[in-house]
Amino acid sequence: MTTANTDLTAADYPLSVNRPDLLHTPTGKTLDDLTMDAVVAGDITAEDLRISPDTLKLQGQLAAAAGRRQLADNFTRASEMTAIPDAEVLDMYNSLRPNASSAAQLEELASRLENTYSATTCAALVREAAQVYAARNLLAEEA
C-alpha cells in the first residue's frame, strides 16, 4: 500500500477531515462511498464500517508523533487483530484470563496468532503473559 511510507503529523488529524484520501474500508470503499443512498440501496453492510489495518497503522503514526508510544503499540496490535473474526477475538481474550489456560494452551494461542494471522506483536504479548502467569501461579493445570 502507498500509505506505508506516509509520515503523518498532528496537522493531518483528524484523518476523516484532513486526509480522507488515505482512508478506505477493508472492503475497499472510501469514506465518500458510505452515503445514505448506498445504505438505503443495501450496498453498505456492517463489514463496510470496519477499520482497516492500514488505517490503524496511520493512527499509530499520529499517536507516536504525539509522544504516545504505548498507544501506538496498542494500534499495532489492533492492526494485526483486524484479521481475526469477532468470536475468535473474544475466545482469545477469555483464554488470557487468570487460570484459564495452561502453558501449552497459551503457546498454542501465540502460534495461532503468529502463523494464521501474522499477528506477531499480539503473539509476543501472549508469550509474555505465559511467562508471568507461570511465575505467579496463574496457569491452568495441563489437560
Binding site: R77, A78, S79, M81, D86, L90, R97, P98, L125
Partner: peptide, 22 residues
Amino acid sequence: FVDGDDTPWSKAFLASAYASRG
C-alpha cells in the same frame, strides 16, 4: 485483579480488540 478474573495482559489484549474494531 485476579478476583476480577483478569490480568494486565488480558486487559491489554481487550484494549487492542476494541481498537481493532475502531
